[in-house]
């Protein structure tokens, strides 16, 4: 399966849209030609998938999988090198009382903290993800955003989490959003690009679907719900809509794109609901931390508590997991 890395996004977009020149009008026609999302049906389906009962060995498997899918995140103005080192150390050893606990997929920090995270993680198989492009608002000039991305990549980031320009999207300037994603993708080089759509600001599921397709068209390797700074952040219906988009995108182009819900997922129960939805909507191919991630910080503690309960047979408590300072996640 090919990835979007070495594809010229504009040429491919022209192909897909069947136009000789990529204009905002052409993009608008294409995106608005996507079928609308049935809001009631979508929410009912998400609610239905939330009621599945996952027990015993399936639950143990799901907990370990969910831990391995976490992008352990700290995105605070008050982040210190010490806090980032602490977070990276937690990623290496999520539960000191049980070394069989898997590591999260990545540590997600601001661009200037990438070297600290990189040094702490060493050769371990935990990626460093950096938010860039004037996160979280995305309100800066294109040049500044791209410089932000290049800087993070030079510092050793394996993955870049960009935010789209929601203002341009809502104003109907899809071409600007497309170019921004495409140029950011180019600036990423070998780093994987996650495109944050900030679904809490997009108002409707139709917009979520359009933004998902637009992000994939621009070359995003992942589509991500939220920055975690806006409420509502990730919700199950929104994630379901995005999972349908990546499934349909693969049917259309043969390329697989990942999904990352972020923000507001705090309990193991929530995480397992998402995994059920991934399995039912996108399919088993996405049940892997290369294709599905949780942007979270406190979720890890709850998963570890559940894991301890399953291992020891006794309910565990906050005294037996790391005390990470609360963040927006």
């Amino acid at each position: 399966m090919s990835t979007a890395t070495d594809v010229d996004a504009t040429a491919r977009a022209r192909d897909l849209l069947g136009v000789s020149r990529l204009t905002n009008q052409a993009l608008t026609g294409w995106l608005h030609g996507l079928p609308g999302v049935d809001q009631v049906g979508c929410e009912a389906r998400a609610a239905g998938l939330s009621t599945r009962s996952i027990k015993t060995s399936s639950k143990a498997w799901a907990i370990d999988l969910a831990i391995s899918m976490i992008d352990l995140t700290t995105l605070e103005g008050a982040d210190t090198p010490g806090k980032v080192r602490g977070l990276a150390t937690r990623a290496l050893v999520p539960d000191p009382s049980d070394r069989t606990t898997p590591s999260p997929a990545a540590v997600c920090v601001y661009g200037d903290m990438v070297p600290v995270a990189r040094d702490t993680l060493g050769d371990a198989d935990v990626k460093v993800a950096a938010v860039a492009t004037a996160f979280p608002s995305g309100r800066a000039s294109r040049a500044v955003k791209l410089a932000d991305v290049r800087d993070a990549v030079e510092n050793g980031a394996d993955e870049i989490d960009m935010v789209i320009d929601r203002g341009a999207f809502l104003a109907g300037d899809y071409l600007a959003v497309f170019r921004e994603v495409a140029e950011t993708k180019e600036a990423c080089g070998r780093a994987r690009l996650k495109v944050i759509m900030e679904t809490g600001e997009l108002s409707t599921y139709d917009n979520v679907r359009r933004a998902s397709w637009l992000s994939m068209l621009g070359g995003g390797d992942f589509i991500k719900t939220s920055t975690g700074k806006i409420s509502p952040a990730a919700t199950l219906p929104v994630t379901l809509t995005m999972l349908e988009a990546v499934r349909d995108w693969r049917d259309l182009t043969g390329e697989q794109v990942g999904v990352k819900p972020a923000g507001g997922i705090r309990t193991s129960k929530d995480a397992i609901r998402y995994l059920v939805t991934v399995h039912e909507v996108a399919g088993e191919d996405w049940l892997d931390n290369h294709w599905f991630r949780f942007g979270a910080s406190s979720l890890l503690n709850d998963l570890v508590l559940q894991r301890q309960k399953m291992t020891t047979g006794a309910y565990s408590g906050a005294d037996y997991v790391a005390d990470d300072a609360p963040s927006g996640y």
């Binding site: 047979g313 006794a314 309910y315 565990s316 408590g317 906050a318 005294d319 037996y320």
Partner: peptide, 9 residues
């Protein structure tokens, strides 16, 4: 027994 073994009690 669940209260007696609960680590957060």
């Amino acid at each position: 027994p669940w209260l007696a073994s609960h680590r957060d009690v």
